[in-house]
């Protein structure tokens, strides 16, 4: 790791001011950032830690919904009775991500803003497209964990497990910048595809901090299914979060298969606001997988999308699914 100056903010305003003015690199739990610093993928001169701003760590019911501070940890979410009972899709995914140690440290904000895990991106000796190079090594190389939807010219999958349920539950992301009004962005508009920006995965502008996640209304039903090779310490190969909010139509959001949390309009169309039957769930799964365009080694993900969507819907409808 290269030496750096370490600043610890004690208030959000101080953090915003410092962040806007001197452009340090922001650190929340540090799980992702410190990894990249150790690999020399990030070599910041100044790191600004949000870690001491305890007021950003909360799970507050509000009206029909709930607000979560950006420093709320994945473990907090996994443990929360409120979230487990009414926002199952989120509690399940946060509660199972990574490992207990990682979850105690990893924050919601950091999880949503973490950089991709593409193995070429994570190794300094692959100067790939996303890092300003000329090629995406995944295209002709090893791509079993890469995207089958929305890829090109870069084929990462979005790493966040918290994002798909939040998108499905129609969450809003609150973004602050020094001296500016807060911006409230629908979760599904927060993430950007590589075709529109290569050097970042979301709409945050310099100086902006994601301070809060709001779920305006608890879903009537929701569930997440993650399919992993290993059951400990692993990333999903594919996941699906589904939710029905306020009696309206179903939302289906896929994870680990596209550069952004992938909203499946095709599945939503099949589902409408109907009650879930096994047959309907299977059809929605088929629909979600229809647009998949596998690379050389990740065709199996198409099948996983079908199963994840089908099972998530059945689970949301209160039915037993293979665990």
């Amino acid at each position: 790791m290269q030496p750096f100056n370490y600043l610890i903010a004690d208030t959000l305003d101080a953090a915003l001011a410092e962040y806007a003015e001197n452009r340090p690199v922001l650190k929340a739990g540090g799980i992702d950032l410190v990894d990249r610093m150790k690999e020399r993928l990030a070599t910041p001169a100044v790191v600004l830690s949000l870690g001491e701003v305890e007021v950003l760590r909360y799970i507050e019911p509000e009206g029909e919904g709930v607000r979560l501070g950006c420093l709320t940890t994945l473990a907090d979410i996994g443990r929360s009775e409120l979230l487990n009972s009414r926002y199952a899709a989120l509690a399940e995914s946060a509660g199972h991500a990574a490992t207990p140690q990682v979850r105690e440290r990893a924050t919601l904000g950091g999880n949503l803003c973490q950089r991709p895990r593409c193995w070429y991106f994570r190794a300094i000796h692959f100067h790939c497209l996303k890092k300003g190079g000329a090629t995406c090594f995944a295209v002709e190389g090893e791509n079993q964990y890469h995207a089958v939807l929305g890829g090109g010219p870069c084929h990462i999958v979005h790493p966040s497990n918290c994002a798909p349920p939040l998108v499905a539950m129609e969450a809003l992301f609150v973004v602050r910048r020094a001296g500016a009004e807060e911006r409230v962005i629908p979760a599904r508009e927060f993430f950007v595809l590589p075709s529109s920006a290569l050097d970042r995965e979301n709409v945050l502008a310099p100086g902006e901090i994601l301070t809060e996640v709001r779920i305006p209304r608890a879903p009537d039903q929701s569930a997440t299914i993650e399919l992993r090779e290993k059951q400990s310490f692993d990333w999903p190969l594919a996941m699906a979060s589904v939710a029905r909010v306020d009696g309206r139509r179903w939302n289906v959001c896929l994870g680990a298969v596209a550069p952004v949390p992938w909203v499946s309009e095709e599945a939503a169309e099949v589902l409408g606001s109907a009650d879930i039957t096994p047959e309907l769930a299977a059809r929605a799964g088929e629909a979600a997988a229809q647009a998949a365009q596998p690379m050389s080694d990740n065709g199996y993900k198409t099948q996983l999308i079908k199963v994840a969507v089908k099972r998530a819907l059945l689970k949301a409808a209160g039915q037993e699914v293979p665990a």
């Binding site: 490992t99 895990r117 193995w119 070429y120 190794a123 000796h125 692959f126 090594f137 002709e140 190389g141 090893e142 964990y145 090779e229 290993k230 059951q231 400990s232 310490f233 692993d234």
Partner: peptide, 22 residues
């Protein structure tokens, strides 16, 4: 990696080893 011969998973994240739940 077939193009460069570099190992793409020289870590314990994508070089996967059975964990407690496995």
């Amino acid at each position: 990696n077939r193009q460069t011969g570099a190992m793409v998973n020289p870590n314990l994240e994508f070089y996967k080893i059975a964990g407690s739940r496995d």
